[in-house]
């Protein structure tokens, strides 16, 4: 009798597990289709676009479905419910110290100062890009991009960002939810600051992309 009971319980558990697997498989298939369909619409155009995989902690710049550049993200945090698998468009970038373009004075020779074998040029280069900045999208989604900073300065910044994320953001979300505009926010941190700089360089206003989970 006990054996029959055990078989019945095992059957129920296995059946439920199989059912859940099937259900999640169905949902995943629909999500994959939605995501691929959104990407196909972007891939048909002649501009590059990005695909951000939140759970895989990976972002790719693509064109025609081909990856041009891949970033591994060190840490990802999110709050709210970003519209996963739909297309988003970058409305603007914001940084505390955004890079400035050099304005050429006609007739003045270009200055090239050599410092320890490297030329200091009056040009906009990758190393002039910020390592901490924000990306604001047309859907209201905000992505905060950070890079790992060591030392005392990094610790101070880390404390400030933690208070912002764990105290200020939930309260802001509460009040915005009451106004029917809940917060949708992602924060990702790159281990290498040059990766964050490359994102700032490559993400132009109007770039489109897909955020997957």
């Amino acid at each position: 009798m006990r054996r029959i009971g055990l078989v019945l319980v095992s059957g129920l558990v296995l059946g439920a597990a199989a059912g859940f697997g099937q259900t999640s498989g169905r949902v995943e298939a629909r999500e994959s289709l939605r995501s691929l369909d959104a990407e196909y619409q972007l891939a048909r155009q002649s501009s590059s676009y990005f695909v951000l995989d939140v759970l895989e902690k990976r972002m790719e710049l693509r064109i025609k479905g081909m990856p041009l550049k891949t970033w591994a993200i060190d840490k990802v945090k999110f709050w709210g419910r970003p519209d996963f698998n739909a297309t988003v468009e970058l409305a603007r970038k914001s940084a505390l110290r955004p890079p400035r373009r050099n304005v050429i004075t006609p007739g003045e020779p270009e200055s090239q100062v050599e410092e320890s074998g490297k030329f200091e040029l009056e040009a906009l280069e990758l190393e002039d890009m910020p390592q901490t900045f924000s990306l604001y999208f047309d859907t209201g989604l905000h992505i905060a991009v950070r890079s790992g900073t060591r030392g005392f300065k990094g610790l101070g910044r880390g404390v400030g960002e933690a208070v912002g994320w764990y105290v200020w953001l939930p309260i802001r979300n509460l009040f915005r939810t009451m106004a029917r505009r809940p917060v949708s926010e992602l924060e990702f941190t790159f281990a290498d600051g040059r990766d964050a700089q490359a994102v700032y360089w490559i993400f132009y206003d109007g770039i489109k992309g897909i955020i997957r989970r």
Partner: peptide
């Protein structure tokens, strides 16, 4: 208390996965 309510509201939103409108497909649809 405010933080508690904020986290309750926020976690309820996050728990809403999968995204809205993402109903499960039938076997035929699959």
């Amino acid at each position: 208390v405010l933080l508690g309510i904020s986290y309750y509201v926020g976690l309820r939103q996050v728990a809403g996965w999968p995204a809205k409108g993402m109903k499960e497909a039938s076997a035929k649809e699959l």
